[in-house]
Amino acid sequence: MTTAQPETVPKSFRPVEFEVTAGGEGFLLGSRCSNCGAHFFPVRQACSGCLHADLETVRFSTTATLYTFSVVRQSTPDFAVPYALGYVDLPEGVRVMAQLTGRDPEDYQIGMEMELVVEPFGADEDGNEMTGYRFQPKEGSQ
């Protein structure tokens, strides 16, 4: 029995910060200090805590807590409005900005438990669809 392979690996909209696997899973990427254990997003060259320069690139957890959010009504040219934008805190001790999805813009709450979802995210210069991340409230989150 053979496993069906996707025809193409989804293309990440920002490969340095976001990895998409062949199976369609997505992971935020950052650095972990091999000396003091601090985590950073995005990838850094040295630790801002202890200045150690030996950092490893790691995949972050895909769960988070919503720290705060806004609904953008006046957009940049790249995104259709309205869209919800938030800061989410990851278990590694890292805060990341992300678009939010899964609820009406008015229905997000500070403190909600969130999870990363892999979604289409714009197109490259040749018009090919790219893949990015958003965070949505976990099922049952108030």
């Binding site: 909209f13 920002r14 705060t68 959010f69 806004s70 953008v72 006046q74 957009s75 940049t76 790249d78 995104f79 869209y83 934008l85 938030g86 800061y87 900005m97 992300a98 678009q99 990015g132």
Partner: peptide, 12 residues
């Protein structure tokens, strides 16, 4: 790249 604008950062 994910849609940050200065107003939205201060709004948050």
């Amino acid at each position: 790249a994910v849609g940050a604008t200065m107003p939205s950062v201060y709004a948050m």
